[in-house]
Design a protein around this nucleic acid. Structure first.
Length: 589
RNA sequence: GGCCCCGUGGUGUAGCGGCCUAACAUGCCACCCUGUCAAGGUGGAGAUCGGCGGUUCGAAUCCGCUCGGGGUCGCCA
């Protein structure tokens, strides 16, 4: 090794040692006869001092520039009291090099490495190897390593086997668009990259491994979002002979430990609250509620059941509902703000947003004239509204009220500063319907995945009222984001065929698309359940970023391309020929 | 695919019809400087304003198209 000590590790106890250091020039402060260099390596930064005591070494120090890679040998000395820098971990010591060797020079980097700066993301990604030198970026990637290491230890200690599954698998029509890989040996046929190892992990349970996990790369060829990329990493886990509670309990213990060990933020509640899907939708309008703040929905339909206000009456007559959010202390909210929230509600599908400000002086509301005193009193009673509060109301079909009021609630959470970045609000959501009707396709579809089991007591409903069948499904939600989910699976062929059939797959299609799992379920498949946990999103929460690329070493850009490697890229005609492929004229290159 | 925002020296911004022969900060280069830690001082180099076309006497500034980036809806767990 060219070095025997890490820069960031030096402490007063090292004083007197002669150390060999190597790293990058973080910053240089040249006073002429005295030069300081902050030397950075993977463990941190330490100050080097060059003076006239060693002219040859100081000459090198003069010549050196930012991000040059250098090695030094020198003595560690404790700093004089007045020169201690309390802002850095190594601030009580400094190193006096007796030799300084330039290992490699560097041009001026394309952006600042030695100070936090909001640099264009494309540039950062193009020079990701420099971006990753920035301590705050490197820290996230390093934290990711620590979390993953902990996950491995935790699961290995509990008898889980880490097993890899293929990345070249079979394309299935379910779920997201597949990434396809052409087969050279079978021209005209394609592999797909896995959206998750779902079927494979069930096969591992059939095989008798009982407890399996994997940090699996999962691929979906869909458009990106701030928290969504084409390839993400999932903690994939499956267990035999378990109930929902067994899986949730294990995951909860793991995530509680991770939060306590690695997060700056603190857990809001332990154990994690469990919300029933219906209840959750009624109170928050979404199946992934942000529990860091209240502003729950209140159904005020009863208060306005015979209202003369046509918007309310009409919605109720059409089988809809009227729901309100009570916003404490916001009775005097500006018209501009209310108008803005109205737009938010409209983007959620509502036709408008009714509002009632309960100021001390009056009932401030454009709809006050349509409401009787009794109706207002009933609304106040139901919502618990007090003087000074604002009521925001949407009247519409059930699903529209949910989406519109959720949009309003979410926006209020941001604007009123209710989303405390130092709080981790986990919750489980359970009791999802197994199936939802797709009217445009005249078939049922799985709300999560087609292998989720269902409550035995609901079996008869599969034939009579499938929408009422409750899945053995559970989602883990954190601060309004789904960070994982799973289920106890169907483990017999008849039930699996039944569900697939309801989803519109003919017997032939079932055998062609899902034959492997259907066949396997016949051979004494054990009861089994598991989860897929989004590791990238977990790291986002732990590091407090809202950009998923911050927790991935080499991420794709939002456009789905890789600015670092310049991928995707055209390929040689010969490669296409070998694969039996020809490009359509319309395809842009 | 729809919608919104952005694109000015290396980096981050300002300028939003003539005052721009494009400003500021930082970085970079040179010189001075022995205790700084975002070192300091003096001097200097550096962008024709993403691209194309148009409007205008005149465009970084207005319009259209286009390319690139970010966000969002659709899509997707």
């Amino acid at each position: 090794m060219l070095k025997d000590t890490y820069c960031g590790d030096l402490r007063p106890s090292d004083a007197g040692r002669t150390v060999r250091l190597a790293g990058w020039v973080h910053r240089r402060r040249d006073h002429g006869g005295l030069t300081f260099i902050d030397l950075r390596d993977s463990h941190g930064i330490v100050q080097l001092v060059f003076n006239a005591d060693n002219q040859a070494t100081q000459d090198v120090a003069h010549r050196v520039r930012g991000e040059w890679c250098i090695a030094v040998e020198g003595e560690v000395r404790e700093r004089a009291a007045e020169t201690v820098n309390p802002n850095m971990p190594t601030g009580q010591v400094e190193v006096y090099p007796s030799s300084c060797q330039v290992l490699n020079e560097s041009p001026t980097p394309p952006f600042y490495i030695n100070e936090p700066a909001d640099v264009d993301e494309l540039l950062r990604l193009k020079y990701r190897y420099l971006d990753l030198r920035r301590p705050e970026v490197a820290e996230s990637i390093r934290l990711r390593h620590e979390v993953v290491r902990y996950i491995r230890t935790f699961l290995c200690d509990r008898d889980f086997a880490e097993i890899e599954t293929p990345t070249l698998i079979k394309s299935t029509p379910e779920g997201a668009r597949d990434f396809l890989v052409p087969s050279r040996m079978r021209p005209g046929q394609f592999f797909a990259l896995p959206q998750s190892p779902q079927i494979l992990k069930e096969l591992l349970m059939v095989a008798g491994f009982e407890k399996y996990f994997q940090l699996a790369r999962c691929y979906r060829d869909e458009d990106f979002r701030a928290n969504r990329v084409a390839e993400h990493t999932q903690l994939d886990l499956e267990m035999s002979f378990v109930t929902e509670d067994d899986v949730m309990g294990l995951v909860e213990e793991l995530y509680t430990e991770i939060a306590k060990r690695f997060a700056k933020a603190t857990l809001l509640a332990e154990p994690f609250p469990r919300l029933d899907y219906e209840d959750c939708m009624a109170r928050y309008g979404i199946d992934r509620p942000d529990l860091r703040f209240g502003l729950e929905f209140v159904d005020i339909s009863a208060a306005v059941a015979s209202s003369g206000f046509q918007v309310f009456a009409g919605a109720l007559a059409a089988g809809g509902q009227v729901k309100a959010i009570r916003v404490p202390g916001q009775a005097e909210m500006s018209r501009k703000e209310i108008d803005s929230l109205t737009e938010v509600a409209k983007s959620g599908g509502a036709k408008g947003l009714a509002w009632i400000g309960l100021t001390a002086a009056e009932v401030r509301s454009p709809i006050a004239k349509f409401l009787t005193g009794d109706e207002l009193a009933a609304m106040r009673s139901l919502t618990g509204a007090e003087t000074g509060d604002m009521l925001l109301i949407v009247a519409d079909a059930r699903a529209t009220v949910a989406s519109a009021l959720h949009a309003v609630r979410d926006t209020l959470g941001d604007r009123l500063g209710l989303k405390d970045p130092d709080v981790l609000a986990f919750c489980w959501v359970t009791g999802f319907p197994l199936l939802e009707w797709r009217p445009e396709e005249s078939r049922w579809d799985a709300t999560h995945n087609p292998f989720s089991g269902f409550r035995e007591e609901d079996r008869a409903l599969l034939d009579t009222d499938p929408s009422k069948v409750i899945a053995k499904q559970y989602d883990l939600v954190l601060n309004g984001a789904e960070v994982g989910g799973g289920s106890v699976r169907i483990n017999n062929r008849a039930d699996q065929e039944k569900v697939l059939g309801m989803m519109g797959h003919s017997s032939e299609q079932q055998q062609e698309r899902f034959g492997v799992i259907l066949d396997a379920l016949e051979f004494g498949a054990p009861p089994m359940g598991g989860v897929g946990m989004g590791i990238d999103r977990l790291l986002m929460m732990l590091t407090g970023t809202d950009n998923i690329r911050d927790v991935i070493a080499f991420p794709k850009a939002s456009s789905g391309t890789d600015p670092l490697m310049s991928a995707p890229s055209p390929v040689d005609e010969a490669q296409l020929t070998e694969l039996g492929l020809a490009l359509r004229p319309a395809a842009k290159s």
